[in-house]
């Protein structure tokens, strides 16, 4: 049974971090939708409500998203519906329902590095940085690959650009976790292909992205990039799909993703 012995609402990040570090089972409380499903016995729950981290704003050429911002706010905020072809809202729309997305926070979603995450895959296709209280600011890809250390995710920084992007997920049923998800983006003919729910966490297909960037998107290179993505990334098996199927889906979805980006470009 989920228990919280003590609960604090610190006034500043340093205090929050201090409490978090005090004991192994002290935990930051996000939206709690996922947390409550576990049997976790939390010593001190750290509630960041007082830190005013619930916001989306534009700062110095970046879109800044506070850790306590809900997924639903990202989904509906004009800055995010109007940039990158609304790839972030698109990535969130199939997650359970509105009332769920009203509660779940972006900080918990990214910090947890869930393999099934829709949001991380979409963020990875953009120029996203993660700001951690202790480890500081770093590209999302670096954050994903670094070993898990206790830290406090403060905010996300997404470079504001004219990047075109598209997000596709494949689900066995509409509100299920994705069997596979794909985000493709392009800025100044430089391409990024990110694939998540493999079922391990999202990763960028570096070689395939480079191929498109170098040779441009033609029907041959699109096919080749899709194929190469499915070859350079690893896929696993879980109850939602086998590795073989994910590999095949990856090829189909990457191809469609690239085509969608090309289609937005011509609009």
């Amino acid at each position: 049974m989920f228990t919280i012995l003590d609960l604090v609402q610190p006034d500043n990040l340093a205090e929050a971090y201090q409490i978090l570090s005090d004991k192994r089972n002290n935990t930051i409380l996000g939206g709690c939708a996922f947390l409550k499903m576990g049997k976790k016995r939390i010593n001190t729950g750290v509630d960041l409500t007082k830190l005013k981290l619930n916001y989306i704003q534009e700062t110095d050429g970046f879109i800044e998203i506070g850790a306590m911002t809900s997924l639903r706010d990202i989904e509906t905020h004009p800055l995010l519906t109007e940039h990158y072809n609304g790839v972030l809202p698109q990535s969130l729309r199939d997650i359970i329902g509105v009332q769920f997305r009203n509660g779940v926070t972006v900080g918990a979603s990214v910090y947890s590095k869930y393999g099934f995450s829709d949001l991380i895959t979409a963020l990875l296709s953009l120029d996203t940085e993660v700001e951690l209280f202790k480890a500081g600011r770093m590209p999302l890809a670096d954050f994903l690959s670094k070993p898990k250390e206790k830290d406090l995710l403060v905010r996300l920084w997404i470079k504001k650009t004219k990047r075109q992007a598209s997000y596709l997920s494949f689900r066995n049923s509409a509100s299920d976790y994705a069997v596979l998800n794909v985000a493709v983006s392009m800025l100044n003919n430089r391409w990024t292909i990110a694939v998540g729910a493999r079922p391990s966490k999202a990763a960028i297909a570096i070689s395939a992205s480079a191929l498109l960037s170098l040779e441009g998107a033609t029907s041959e290179t699109i096919e080749e990039a899709a194929k190469r993505t499915s070859e350079e990334l690893s896929f696993g098996t879980n109850t939602r799909g086998t590795a073989t199927y994910r590999k095949a889906l990856c090829r189909a979805l990457v191809k469609r993703g690239i085509m969608e980006v090309l289609a937005c470009k011509s609009n």
Binding site: L29, T49, F100, G103
Partner: peptide, 27 residues
């Protein structure tokens, strides 16, 4: 549901629909 996904417990918090089963009461 116990897993934040059925919607039966939906109430409004400051006018926004929320899963009351997943909102800590002190929030």
């Amino acid at each position: 549901c116990d897993t934040s996904c059925c919607g039966l417990c939906t109430v409004w918090m400051d006018g926004k629909s929320m899963l009351s089963c997943s909102v800590l009461s002190l929030r």
